[in-house]
Amino acid sequence: MKRAIALTINGVRVEAEVEPRKTLADFIREDAELTGTKLGCEHGVCGACTVLLNGEAVRSCLIFAVQADGAEIMTVEGLAQNGQFHKLQQAFWENHALQCGFCTPGFLMSSYALLQENPNPTEDEIREGLSGNICRCTGYQGIVAAVKSVAGSAE
């Protein structure tokens, strides 16, 4: 049986009727039509689906959309403002932190959450903070360098 839910994604209210088994990831992609959030493994291992739920990084493939009823979600589409890259996006670009780009939305959201909590992380803290995200292309060095390059700089 479908249920009516309403949540806020990147500041925009989204309402829909969903089956309880629909994951938040599928809701974001199919109902909210925000396809920046990616699905790699659908069982919690790769981190590609990472979004912010009420300010905390979570795997959107492991939460049902009905559970997020009333919540505030932030996805990768919420990073850029007025057509300007967020400093993290700019840093990913400048540090070759992506190749195919499939993992990038997840890495950006994990990095964003990390810097919210700890604005000036050490390299070890960056590696630990991003340990739940898998990248098959870059070898991670560029990603760590990108986060490091913005660490300590204010919002």
Partner: peptide, 9 residues
């Protein structure tokens, strides 16, 4: 246990 995003939930 796992990673920060896993422990958040």
């Amino acid at each position: 246990i796992g990673h920060p995003a896993v422990r958040n939930r």
